[in-house]
């Protein structure tokens, strides 16, 4: 068996830091982060206004900053769920094919590093930038919340919102891995960006319409059998969960609302002995969305593997 000499991760740090520096100084990143920042501030400002108007007292006021919306603006969480894939795609769509187009790939791979380092470095560099952006937004939210509501977040709020931040990063990782996979497979950056955006559009906007349609075909409702209604709902939910946006929305709903108990149909038998509106402990909420979180991480790894295999098999001539 052929054993590779040295570590495949040699050079990962150098490439990741260079990529992160490139992204942080690029006009593309400045534009998209400016957009995210503006919308985030708008959403939070709207949420604060609505909370002040309608909520006299709430045990989870800080978490409401993420989820409460004021027309016409959606909530911060909804904004992030919509815009974050765009940030990830913007950072990854030309990761590999950009090196070919700049004709730097053969020089890069002629250095004493493996191809693995190039792919890992690019992925980690972009993920680091997203993590920095998310942390900045989170700190901004916390600051604005304290400033306008006058209430500091509790420890449970901080843990829940940080868990939400981690889930958001995992979701961004899925879209980043997808964009990098397209950049490894498609030689033109414009085409790979378009391909990634098409997938985003389908899974974010149209999947909500496609899932019931497919569920109706797979599990039709029999008017004489009430259990088929449930079967179709479950089929619809399973199909909808093929989209990372559905998984992310379910994680958001559970983590940012301590009173939420289920992401699926809730039966009376499940509520037996529970106090209506009583919050779940943070760990309980985390356990409910653990499968969704695992699925996001698995999707990220799967897409990264596709990118890895495609890149490893490529002939380098430029």
């Amino acid at each position: 068996m052929m054993v590779r000499e040295g570590s495949p991760f040699r050079g990962v740090g150098v490439i990741a830091l260079k990529e992160a520096a490139d992204h942080l100084t690029s006009a593309r990143m400045h534009l998209i982060m400016g957009l995210v920042l503006l919308t985030a501030i708008g959403a939070v400002y709207g949420a604060i206004g609505r909370i002040k108007d309608t909520t006299a007292e709430d045990a989870y006021l800080f978490l409401k900053l993420f989820t409460v919306a004021r027309e016409p603006l959606p909530s911060f969480a909804a904004f992030l769920g919509f815009l974050l894939p765009l940030v990830a795609i913007a950072l990854g769509f030309d990761a590999i094919n950009g090196e070919y187009n700049r004709r730097t790939m053969s020089r890069l791979l002629a250095q004493p590093i493996y191809r693995d380092a190039v792919l890992f470095g690019k992925f980690l560099g972009a993920l680091l930038v997203i993590a920095i952006a998310l942390l900045t937004l989170w700190l901004l939210m916390t600051g604005l919340g304290i400033l306008f509501l006058g209430l500091p977040p509790t420890a449970a709020d901080v843990v829940r919102s940080l868990a939400y931040l981690a889930a958001t990063l995992a979701c961004a990782g899925v879209w980043l891995a997808l964009a990098i996979a397209f950049s490894a497979v498609i030689r033109s950056p414009a085409t790979s960006a378009l391909a990634a955006l098409s997938v985003w559009l389908i899974l974010t906007v149209f999947w909500g319409m496609i899932a019931p349609l497919l569920a109706g075909l797979i599990a039709p409702i029999d008017p004489l059998d009430p259990s088929t209604v449930l079967a179709q709902f479950e089929a619809q939910q399973s199909i909808a969960r093929l989209s990372p946006q559905t998984l992310y929305a379910e994680i958001t709903a559970i983590l940012l609302d301590p009173a939420a108990r289920s992401v699926g149909p809730l039966f009376m038998s499940q509520l037996q002995g529970s106090l209506y509106g009583a919050p779940l402990p943070t760990m309980e909420s985390a356990l409910i969305v653990w499968p969704q979180l695992s699925a996001l991480v698995a999707a990220m790894i799967l897409l990264f593997t596709v990118a890895y295999v495609a890149f490893q098999r490529q002939e380098v001539r430029a």
Partner: peptide, 24 residues
Amino acid sequence: PLRRPLEVKRDVGYLPDSVGFYET
């Protein structure tokens, strides 16, 4: 070069046709 690529690459430099650099 396939079994000991890092050692070989350390000793071999490559200047491709139309050498590319990071422009910025």
